[in-house]
Nucleic acid binder design. Structure first.
Length: 568
RNA sequence: GCGCCCGUAGCUCAGUGAAUAGAGCAACUGACUUCUAAUCAGUAGGUCGCAGGUUUGAAUCCUGCCGGGCGUGCCA
């Protein structure tokens, strides 16, 4: 809606500039696109354009004089109520408020679909995220990635894209070998070989002691009789299965569902890495050196070549990873989005180069980094998390701690809100004390409370046997005080917020928007009474407003995977 | 050394080349006989890391420097 208005205004302004040129009042060779800048507040009108300032140099005239000339030639349009020239040369336009009431009708009519849009380009998109090694429980960094990926998928779906969510299981390679070895040591420690120690590059977390105990409970010490290699392999498989089950279960608890789980081992069993080597060989991109096989990544823009087959004959991670991405393309996706942790940032460039080397367009691949999460303890110390060192704060622990104070559903809501309320790029300080003990201050509750208040009004309405009129019988133009029109304008922005958040891959815009809307609603609620039977017409119009707020907040929270409570 | 990210109020963070740089938390002052006070109204708090440059206009773009994080050819 607001976009249509901008388009119309933009044409009107262009026409005015053309008129001014025709009458030799402005000298310009061509008319640029009219851009609109955000208005700081109501005093700057509904739409503002700095066009006069940007034309200043080309036309060799002071900005305010250009603005005056443009305004002089603006043709009358019932849509535009008032025009002002302000500051260094802004043209501020005040839009007639008739359109506001159409917004309310739209929201009521579209209900759950309000905010969804039909993008003109519908793509098949695959988002890969979390993809944690199956060597430990999911930590809160993975929790952040899970929330971001899940919501990004919702956003893309809401803009008419066809999205598949995928988890890549790194169940092959060195890391899981070390997992097997570490379980072996825990197993033998528990059975009396106390002098054994987990090597530095093994997994030190106590969860492997628990797992070893479970294994002993199930099969006793019979595995000691197996060959070490066979035993470690067995432990590796048991470990992967067990830890992956744990990851799946916490993701489900956290409300994140994946459509596809792809196993690296399966990619390897299908000999897809060998196909990559074959392709590179045919393209003459490989050479031998120092006993290893190298890939000429420098040909694709990197500053270094890289090893693809190690001197021990094993692939480096590049090869199965390239095979995996080729496999994704083979499945017919137009765009691959990988959400990766900060420790993989160098990897994005590599993937880019590999994809180029395989003959795909790099525009079909996007690597996003979700930054690290620092754990802030009550004493103020930040803790770096590392699965191998065993410094671990798991997503499970977080949800458990939150559940103790706010209950299971709100625990998930709060955690998700917390993870989503930052730009992907910025580090997130997760202050446990704040999240747990000050749960009531969490902005998540603030937004949910606004929804609960709307519901509460309708409950009270029914209790008092007040009937709500159909919208076509309501005098919507009674909604005229600032608090009311500001809320409606805010709700008019919602579809655009969704679209931009999807386009820019920035889920944090949604909680930010919802907080602002909730804030405006709370202000309105404190100032104005809705259920006022002495003023029937006004009451009916406000009931429409409240219904719309309820719909928009519920729709937004739904996208975030956060519940919309009717009571709090 | 090189690459990426970050540096904005006491703290955590927004900020699309544009108007007086904004929120929340913490602090302080007020508001419940009301549709839910998990709320609201208000006060205070800033050399936008530093120095140059581009521009009519820079927190935003460019260069250099300082500080923090992550990565950096056979871990993934």
């Amino acid at each position: 809606m607001i976009n249509q208005i901008k388009l119309r205004v933009s044409r009107t302004i262009k026409a005015a500039i053309q008129q001014a040129i025709n009458q030799n009042e402005i000298s310009l060779e061509s008319i640029p696109d009219i851009i609109f800048s955000p208005t700081k507040g109501p005093e700057h009108g509904d739409i503002a354009t700095p066009i006069a300032m940007s034309l200043s140099k080309l036309a060799k005239m002071p900005p305010r004089q250009i603005a005056k000339t443009i305004v002089k030639h603006l043709v009358d349009d019932p849509l535009i109520r008032q025009v002002e020239i302000a500051g260094p040369g802004f043209i501020n336009l005040f839009v007639s408020e008739d359109w506001l009431y159409e917004i309310l009708e739209n929201i009521i009519h579209q209900n759950k679909n309000y905010g969804r849009s039909q993008s003109n380009i519908s793509k098949r998109i695959l988002i890969e995220f979390v993809s944690a090694n199956p060597t430990g429980p999911l930590n809160i960094v993975s929790g952040r990635a899970a929330a971001v990926g899940d919501v990004l998928a919702n956003l893309l779906n809401a803009t008419n894209q066809n999205v598949t969510c995928e988890f890549y299981i790194n169940d092959a390679g060195k890391q899981v070998e070390r997992l097997g070895e570490s379980i072996d040591i825990r197993y033998r420690q528990l059975l009396g070989e106390e002098e054994l120690e987990i090597p530095e590059d093994g997994y030190h977390g106590t969860y492997l002691i628990d797992l070893a105990q479970l294994i002993i409970k199930n099969v006793g010490k019979q595995y000691l009789q197996l060959d070490r290699d066979i035993r470690i392999n067995k432990f590796k498989n048991i470990g992967i299965q067990h830890l992956l089950d744990g990851q799946k279960s916490i993701l489900k608890r956290f409300g994140v569902e994946f459509d596809v789980w792809t196993s690296e081992q399966k990619i390897r069993n299908d000999k897809k890495p060998e196909q990559i080597i074959e392709i590179f060989k045919q393209k003459n991109l490989l050479y031998e050196s120092e006993g290893a096989t190298w890939f000429q990544m420098t040909k694709f823009g990197d500053d270094k070549d890289c090893v693809v087959i190690k001197s021990d004959g094993e692939f480096t991670y590049f090869v199965p990873d390239a095979a995996y991405h080729r496999d994704k393309f083979d499945r017919g996706f137009d765009l691959l989005i990988d959400i990766l942790g900060p420790d993989h940032q160098g990897h994005i460039a590599h993937l880019d180069h590999l994809i180029k080397a395989l003959g795909y367009n790099t525009e079909q691949f996007e690597g996003l980094i979700v930054q690290q999460v620092n754990l802030v303890h009550p004493d103020g110390n930040r803790v770096e998390m590392s699965k191998r060192k065993g410094h671990l704060y798991t997503l499970d622990q977080l949800i458990n701690e939150l559940t103790e104070t706010v209950g299971e559903q709100f625990a998930v809501d709060v955690a998700r809100y917390f993870f989503l309320n930052r730009t992907n790029n910025s580090h997130l300080d997760f202050d446990i004390k704040l999240a747990v003990t000050r749960a009531n201050d969490n902005p998540s509750f603030y937004v949910q409370y606004a929804h609960a208040r709307c519901c509460s009004i309708f409950r009270e309405m029914k209790d008092r046997k007040i009937d709500q009129l159909p919208i076509n019988q309501v005098k919507l133009n009674l909604l005229a005080i600032d608090e009311e029109t500001q809320i409606i304008k805010k709700m008019a922005d919602y579809p655009e917020v969704i679209m931009n958040a999807a386009k820019e891959r920035e889920p944090y815009r949604i909680p930010k928007y919802l907080y602002e809307l909730a804030s405006q609603f709370h202000t309105f609620y404190n100032k104005s009474r809705v259920l006022d039977t002495k003023h029937q017409d006004l009451m009916q119009s406000r009931l429409v407003l409240v219904r719309c707020v309820q719909i928009v907040i519920a729709n937004g929270l739904k996208l975030l995977g956060i519940s919309s409570p009717e009571k709090m």
